[in-house]
């Protein structure tokens, strides 16, 4: 992995490095401590709501209403099974979960395959003027807000009989995530030592052989970053989903959660169990992969 890093973007590497700044060795003033205190407050502000979702997920309605911090009250683990099986007449949570996984996997596949192939083609091709032109296409594609696209995309999905298909939504998200993947991996591939590619060519590898054999494996870092970013984006996206996934059993987590308030749960705690179930998978992936995200974002990643 460290080899990967050195071939990738140095600025990204800089993010990861623990730099020794000169101010560090100075005596800390009152202002320093005050500033640090503010940072701690912000930290509590960011971490607490996430924690509180999990705390409230095992409480009953009365406890949720009377102790919204989530620290007091009896434990009700049954909330989870109730959320998992869905409200009476509602949709079981595992439908949402499976659909989210399906759409995320489809999106990651499409985004990575299309994105990396494109970046490599852009980096390596010698057609005059093509690369800047195509890069511009991808950047412009990034600027159009989803709101301009949703109605026709809905029509396209309908014509293809792909409404209510989480996989199809995933494919759409994958294509929409493509420009970002291109921008991230293009930066990374640009840094890839040309000598290495030439050596591969001399060795009888074709351009695409070099791509599969050398460039992809040695850029695992940025690619992992793209995968995780796509995953975060698709896991939380609902603007297209709410339109295209109307059938209850076809909804993803993000879409299903928007209707959660409208369902009839015995208690408020179940609502929070639902939120917790939706957050847990992505949270775990983030904590494992967080350094790739940091690196990927520093490479210029931005998702819709």
């Amino acid at each position: 992995m460290s080899a990967t890093l050195s071939t990738a973007e140095p600025a990204a590497a800089a993010v990861m490095a623990t730099k020794t700044r000169p101010s560090r060795n100075h005596r800390r003033s009152v202002w320093w401590w005050l500033g640090f205190l503010l940072l701690v407050v912000w930290t509590i502000g960011t971490i607490f709501p996430v924690l509180s979702i999990f705390l409230l997920s095992v409480r009953g309605t009365q406890d949720v209403y009377n102790h919204p911090l989530g620290f007091s009250g009896a434990l009700q683990w049954g909330n989870y099974s109730e959320a998992w099986n869905g409200a009476p007449g509602g949709t079981a949570f595992y439908h949402y979960l499976i659909n989210s996984v399906v759409s995320v996997v489809a999106a990651m596949l499409i985004a990575i395959v299309l994105g990396t192939v494109t970046s490599y083609a852009l980096v390596r091709n010698t057609s005059p003027g093509k690369t800047p032109l195509l890069l511009r296409v991808f950047v412009i594609a990034l600027v159009f807000p989803l709101v301009v696209l949703v109605i026709p995309i809905f029509g396209l999905l309908d014509q293809a009989a792909l409404l209510n298909s989480p996989a199809a939504i995933g494919v759409v998200y994958g294509v929409l995530a493509c420009p970002t993947v291109v921008l991230i991996t293009y930066s990374a591939f640009l840094e890839f030592p040309e000598e290495l590619i030439d050596a591969g060519n001399l060795d009888g590898l074709s351009e695409w052989g070099v791509f599969l054999r050398l460039v992809l494996p040695l850029n695992r870092g940025p690619i992992a970053a793209c995968l995780v970013l796509t995953m975060i984006f698709v896991w939380g996206e609902a603007q297209l989903g709410i339109i295209a996934l109307q059938q209850a059993q076809s909804k993803t987590l993000a879409v299903g959660l928007l209707g959660l308030q409208g369902q009839y749960f015995t208690n408020q705690g179940v609502l929070f169990s639902g939120l917790a179930l939706a957050t847990l998978p992505i949270l775990v992936v983030y904590l494992i992969m967080q350094k790739f995200i940091v690196r990927g974002l520093a490479l210029g990643g931005a998702l819709r």
């Binding site: 299309l114 994105g115 494109t118 091709n125 010698t126 057609s127 195509l134 696209l149 109605i151």
Partner: peptide, 26 residues
Amino acid sequence: RRLLVIGALPAVAGIALLVAYPVVRT
């Protein structure tokens, strides 16, 4: 290497279908 630019086609086609066409259609 000039022809390599073809590799960008699938993504460009995707963008054309799911970004460019929708913009025009909207």
